[in-house]
């Protein structure tokens, strides 16, 4: 049933594809973190049109499927002259999609910082930027690390969708190997285990990070 020799022989190929999966996840998540924060700022803006447009954009992205967004970025944008590699398109798609979720998470974290912290910052004459950097974000982010971590793992598990825009991530690689050799059990099982192990490692890492940031 299970062929160890075969399993070992396909490992290099799978590990290589796993690198693609991991790159897409990490880059996509970084993008989502940054974009999500910008969206959260835009949404809080006193300039009403900006906050309304941002709200609409977030709602729109959240209520359409990630797959449709990936197709749009990879197949429609080139018609407007924007050509992207599968990996770039995938990172942008994942990042954009998840940024809308993360923006809401940031918002909750920011809203949870007591008003007195803003007032103390004003009384000390901090600039807006300094208030965000020194006072608000360091208090807003640690409590939301677990939720952000869940989105990170969620994004990791969404990466097989990128095969739809021709990116050979690890699950697609397993499928290709299977279709060549007519043996699916080893590649698919190995990929499943890879996802399991990495998700587990991530969640442990997130918990460590949370504990570290919550020292005070």
């Amino acid at each position: 049933m299970w062929d160890w020799e075969y399993a070992f022989s396909i490992m290099p190929q799978l590990l290589k594809a796993l690198q693609i999966t991991i790159s897409a996840t990490i880059l996509g998540f970084l993008l989502a973190c940054i974009l999500g924060l910008l969206l959260a700022f835009a949404r809080r803006s006193n300039f009403k049109p900006l906050s309304l447009v941002t709200g609409g954009f977030v709602e729109f992205v959240r209520s359409t499927p990630l797959l449709a967004q990936l197709y749009f970025i990879f197949y429609v944008l080139p018609q407007c002259g924007i050509m992207l590699s599968p990996l770039s398109a995938g990172v942008i798609g994942l990042g954009l999609h998840y940024s809308t979720y993360l923006s809401e998470v940031y918002r909750a974290g920011i809203d949870a910082v007591p008003r007195g912290q803003w007032e103390a910052s004003t009384a000390l004459n901090f600039s807006r930027t300094r208030t965000w950097l020194s006072v608000i974000l360091p208090q807003a982010i640690p409590p939301i690390i677990p939720v952000m971590g869940n989105y990170f793992i969620g994004m990791f598990k969404d990466t097989p969708l990128l095969s739809a825009i021709t990116l050979v991530e690890v699950l697609q690689a397993a499928k290709i190997i299977g279709s060549h050799t007519f043996r699916y059990i080893e590649p698919i099982t190995i990929v499943g285990l890879m996802f399991l192990v990495l998700s587990y490692v991530s969640s442990v890492g997130i918990r460590r990070l949370e504990a570290r940031l919550n020292r005070w």
Binding site: P114, G116, Q117, E119, A120, A123, L124, N125, F126, S127, R130, S134, V135, P138, Q139, P142, W216
Partner: peptide
């Protein structure tokens, strides 16, 4: 100075007092 202190809970006492002199 506020009724509820409003210290920065994530900073040490020293940093609470140095943050504004340094950055402002």
């Amino acid at each position: 100075v506020f009724q509820q202190f409003n210290l920065f809970p994530h900073m040490t006492i020293l940093r609470n007092v140095t943050e504004a002199p340094i950055h402002v």
